[in-house]
Design a protein around this nucleic acid. Structure first.
Lengths: 143, 143
DNA sequence: AGAGACTACATGCACATGCATTCAATGCAA
DNA sequence: TTGCATTGAATGCATGTGCATGTAGTCTCT
């Protein structure tokens, strides 16, 4: 009655648990550190980063729908996240001239500054938690 | 002014984005599929699985604090999740005899059944999304 | 041009999560 | 024993998320 996993399945499960552990650890630490020291959530940082990458130099801005698939958020969550960033003065929302349904989001000076300030910490956290050792299987979280 | 990442940092970022994409895709699909077809969330399934692994045969049950680190949930979230499972009749909460602050959680017959029913689908989703190809960078999110 | 389908984004709502707090049980010290 | 710090778990509260829906703009077909 298939009580046990096949070797292939067991491998998948191990891989999945490793992924879950790394994700939880990294995301949690990122959120805490970025939040405490820069007032940014992990997703906020991620969005800011895409915006900086996407429209650095050109003041163009990105369509919300271009942003969405890259940050793994629902359309509604992204909409509100942008709302928060806008209220904080880190991005601007502007109507698209070519398609007035669309919204072009662009980082402000302040947004760019905050991103640049936060980036070293972000990278530091990644280097801490993504160290190549493949997490001890059942992520004890030695804490 | 360190506008760019070092190669090492760029590697970390790429690794992180890949991890995020895989996680989002897998977690999202797991939640949807398990939810629709078995009335279980991803975390619910995970907890059930640990319980089945941890006290299969012996009717012992696991302490909440033993469960917590393995599912990457806060203590409060886990407490409520167990509450939900209990209300659904899938687990039981019992006082520890040796330390009456503690709670022993154990799967019920019904819980074991639901888990066993759901497992094949769980494994199937993993095999779909965790395929070894390193995700197209910009996780599609079939939203 | 006009009607209807469709798209882009915003919003109401329900809910799961984390943090801080609370409450009970335990352990330790005097 | 009493008193106090600590631990295990539950709960109040604020928040971020997804789904379903709403609203405005665009496209297509006639």
């Amino acid at each position: 009655m298939a009580e046990l996993d096949s070797p292939a399945e067991a491998g998948l499960v191990a891989q999945w648990r490793d992924l879950l552990a790394r994700h939880a650890q990294t995301a949690c630490l990122l959120d805490r550190e970025l939040g405490e020291k820069h007032g940014l959530g992990m997703s906020e940082f991620e969005v800011l980063e895409r915006l900086v990458e996407g429209c650095d130099g050109t003041g163009g801005g990105l369509r919300v729908q271009e942003l969405a698939p890259t940050v793994h958020l629902s359309q509604s969550a992204l909409s509100r996240l942008i709302g928060r960033l806008e209220k904080a003065g880190l991005v601007t929302r502007a109507m698209c001239s070519d398609d007035r349904r669309g919204i072009k989001v662009a980082v402000t000076e302040e947004g760019h500054r905050r991103y640049t300030e936060a980036r070293p910490l972000h990278r530091e956290v990644l280097s801490l938690t993504l160290a190549d050792d493949p997490v001890p299987a059942c992520g004890p979280i030695p804490d």
